[in-house]
Simulated assay, not measured.
Amino acid sequence: MVNPGKRMHVLQALLALRHGPGAAILPPEITRIHMDFALKWNDGHLGPRKFWKTCLPRLKFWNPAIPMLVNRSDQQAGPATMSIYFRQTSLDPTSPSSSSTSSSTSPSSVAAAARNMLPLAQQPKSSTENEHPAPPPEAGERVVTIDMKNVHSDAIFSEFMAKTGATPVHPSPDEEVEMRQVEEREERATVDRAIVKKYIDDKRREERMLALARHEAEAIKLANQ
């Protein structure tokens, strides 16, 4: 049987990944997302860094097929930009079936398929040495950018949702119950930790006082010899 404490920790981590800022389903027109910002948080890069830490993992959880690449550099004075690539839809007012057929064989779809067919070692990866800056849009793609520098992560996420038209993911009733249980357990754990800490601190203070009393007693004994 799984330890209840371990199960609760796993549940807490899963709920934290599934819900919160960044929990959203992106429209099928989005082909990839690219973030470009500095390694350190200062000089206006705190918001992008927090978005990367908190929102991007949830976006990737709900949209695993969409490439999300992060390019970082040591240029703190440089820009902080998010590039969102969209597949351009056909402007020909034909029937829905022909429109869907043309979009499925669009140049951007072919390019995306070609990227995914590359060996893993040759596919673009996130970088901490400015190795993969945002590429220009390919044929059949358009790119929308968000200036993230000196912007709070919440504002970045709000602009991201507005420009992508993503659908927020809300917890189910069962998940809301589980989230309340996790929160209540964490509150009880905080109280328990405070009680244990006070007990340990009191015990250590008592031991120090006993040690000091023994030392003074030995000093008095030596002085009276």
Rank of each mutant, 00 (worst) to 15 (best):
G140F: 02
I25A: 13
S97T: 13
A38G: 11
E207M: 03
S95F: 01
R49M: 15
S106Q: 08
L39K: 11
I84V: 13
E218T: 11
H132S: 07
T167H: 09
S106V: 02
G47D: 13
P27A: 02
P27I: 00
M35D: 02
G78M: 02
V196E: 15
E138M: 04
V2M: 14
A111R: 09
A166Q: 02
D192M: 09
S100E: 15
A114I: 03
G78I: 03
P67C: 01
E207L: 02
K50R: 13
N116E: 15
D192G: 00
R87S: 08
M209C: 04
L26H: 04
R49L: 12
A189W: 07
R58Y: 01
G78P: 08
I156Y: 04
E187M: 04
P168E: 02
L26R: 03
K6F: 05
H45M: 01
D201K: 05
L39S: 06
L15D: 06
R180W: 06
E129N: 14
D74G: 07
F86A: 00
R185V: 00
V169M: 01
A223D: 13
A217G: 12
T164W: 09
F37K: 03
L14N: 05
Q123K: 14
S108T: 01
R87P: 02
T164E: 13
L56S: 08
T190K: 09
W62L: 03
A24T: 12
A24W: 10
K203W: 08
F160N: 04
A80I: 12
A134P: 10
R142T: 11
G140N: 00
E129D: 12
S126P: 07
G78C: 04
L120N: 09
K50L: 15
A219N: 15
T31I: 04
R49D: 14
Q76W: 13
D74V: 02
L11M: 07
D92C: 06
S104M: 10
F157E: 15
P124W: 00
T105D: 10
G5H: 10
S102V: 11
W62E: 07
I146L: 15
T101V: 11
D192W: 11
